[in-house]
Nucleic acid binder design. Sequence first.
DNA 1: TCCCTATGTAACACTGTGCAACAGAATCAA
DNA 2: TTGATTCTGTTGCACAGTGTTACATAGGGA
Lengths: 245, 245
Amino acid sequence: MNIPRLLVVDDDAELRQMLTQFLQQNGCIALPATNEADIQKHLAAGRIDLILLDVMLGDENGVEICARLREEQSVPIIMVSALSADSDRMAGYAVGADDYIVKPFNTELLLARIRAVLARARRTSSLAHRRQKAIYQFAGWAYDSKRNEVVSPEGYQVSLSQRETMLLQAFLANARIPLTRQEIAVALDVTGEGDKTSDAEGRAIDVLVGRLRAKIENDPKKPDMLRTERGVGYVFAVDVVAEDD
Amino acid sequence: MNIPRLLVVDDDAELRQMLTQFLQQNGCIALPATNEADIQKHLAAGRIDLILLDVMLGDENGVEICARLREEQSVPIIMVSALSADSDRMAGYAVGADDYIVKPFNTELLLARIRAVLARARRTSSLAHRRQKAIYQFAGWAYDSKRNEVVSPEGYQVSLSQRETMLLQAFLANARIPLTRQEIAVALDVTGEGDKTSDAEGRAIDVLVGRLRAKIENDPKKPDMLRTERGVGYVFAVDVVAEDD
DNA sequence: TCCCTATGTAACACTGTGCAACAGAATCAA
DNA sequence: TTGATTCTGTTGCACAGTGTTACATAGGGA
């Protein structure tokens, strides 16, 4: 198992220093950050397993930052705050924080919660770091990722374009989980370079989904597997069996 | 979007009753349990999205149960306890609890944390143990939650919109229990992000009910199943049988 | 009976989605 | 290189899903 990489976001230099040091001593890689721009930089630069986010960041607001991060990332976030009022905690949870810790906190407790969140993320980890399986089967279909072939239940071979293949892979890896256009765009943008929003804004995703439907749905007009979740995105609504090679 | 199914584990009958009722009123399906055997039974019987686990269970110990569950299941667990000492919380997190709530707790906060954990699980979960009741039968009708199809007694297939489906699910989960508009609005807004009152204030619910009636009632003018409870809300006045897949 | 309130619902407006048609980019064959 | 073919994003339009509004109607008490 890899050493966890944490991002410590706090505008109080002393506390930040203390926290990073403490975490380093406890087997983590702790990177300091002071504002949203910092966070984005780190996220772009490399893997971050968890963000420790202070709610009060001078002129920025941790809750808002958390909400924005959630829109595009699924990196776990623990909010840290001096505010213990229920309404504050609820605000934290509402924007998708994974946990909420009130200052001053017992450092051991902090570690325990970090471990809990990391363990959960690992247990359920999604798109990114998952071992590549070779053959996927779903609803009679088979997709061989090695040969990049798709075979229908009747035995016909269907050829998918590169883009369609990537889309199918994204769905196979997230069977039964609704994906937003935003998420799909990110999944399709493997380089991580391009402007992730560009795809999601237009209708490119819709059209692409339509094209995939045309190839793998029995009746593309009434999608059975690749369903629309209005106002959300799309779900691959079948069970997928993945086999090692 | 499915209605979350929670398991409320507590040996105090009164508290258990209060909790399940509160959760039902807030758009969840809440199932009561008193001990580990109960939990195992429910897990084996059908889909459970989250377990609310009291730490003190008479002669059993919630922390140990949690640890055992963690070994084989990845179902999210929120521990509930009267103990607030840091060491106790750490014990909870150490065995893999997703959250830890101290009694007495604000019920709104409880809801917020349940939503947070559910949202997290939904975002990332990929494991396939979403074994759920697949088919509901009522008054000759059948609703297949897997294919999301409704079939009339005569065998005609009826297609419901997403919203209508959610409404039907809410009624199926609360057959014979009158639901207020407020409760229905909450059930339709499982994510809890939107303003829950918005739906209930206007006539949106009424219109939606009308549309569902138009599709599943024999004579929509004289509703047989989906009855109006004047001054209260609506009741689904038929018995519902749920079958495993 | 009248009156007031709750409910039913048609009509409308707004938004999200499906998709055909088009155009530029990429790939391939010769 | 040229021309054909395939891939892929964009655009525009039709339509479906859903909430709102306005008005009709039903219930129930005085």
